[in-house]
């Protein structure tokens, strides 16, 4: 087995990342061939940030991974049935003399809108950003909840 070794620059680090790169290529190849294990919405949406949305009887919950994003750089708005998430992901400036071995983190602006499946109560909605994860709790409006009819078996 051959490990990747740096041939230029000071040999402070060499990376055992051969598997990772191979795996990424395999992953991309599978995706191209449509062989992904699960058809996920991300392939159709393709907009940052990726989101998960869950629903229970009383509310809709949205989560997004936003590592390194500060609360003050995040803007969340709800207008009728549309939720908009806007912001900027910033990476602190690095010293000019920094010599990069890897640069995989990305920064930039983002904006994503989502049509909510049910009426929610904007007044009671809340959002929290913790450990780089945004969680938005959207309680359903009284009308939306009233429309649910539970059927019980005898």
């Amino acid at each position: 087995m051959t490990f990747l070794r740096r041939v230029h620059g000071p040999a402070l680090l060499d990376f055992l990342e051969f598997n990772r790169m191979r795996n990424q290529m395999e992953h991309a190849w599978k995706a191209l061939r449509g062989g992904v294990d699960r058809i996920r919405d991300s392939y159709s949406a393709g907009v940052f940030p990726l989101i998960n949305v869950t629903e229970d009887d009383d509310s809709i919950t949205l989560t997004a991974e936003l590592p390194g994003v500060k609360v003050e750089d995040l803007e969340l708005s709800i207008k009728s049935d549309t939720l908009t998430l806007k912001g900027e992901k910033k990476i602190p400036e690095r010293p000019k003399e920094a010599n990069f071995f890897r640069k995989e983190r990305v920064e930039g602006t983002f904006s994503r809108s989502l049509t909510l499946p049910v009426r929610i109560d904007p007044e009671k909605s809340s959002a929290a950003l913790k450990n780089g994860i945004l969680t938005v709790a959207l309680p359903k409006s009284a009308e939306a909840r009233a429309h649910q009819v539970s059927v019980k078996a005898d």
Partner: peptide, 19 residues
């Protein structure tokens, strides 16, 4: 995803691990 860079003093590694 990671960034690794080196300066005079040492090596800096930053990794995004939300959650």
């Amino acid at each position: 995803p990671i960034d690794i860079w080196e300066d005079e003093q040492g090596l800096h590694i930053e990794a995004e691990m939300p959650g």
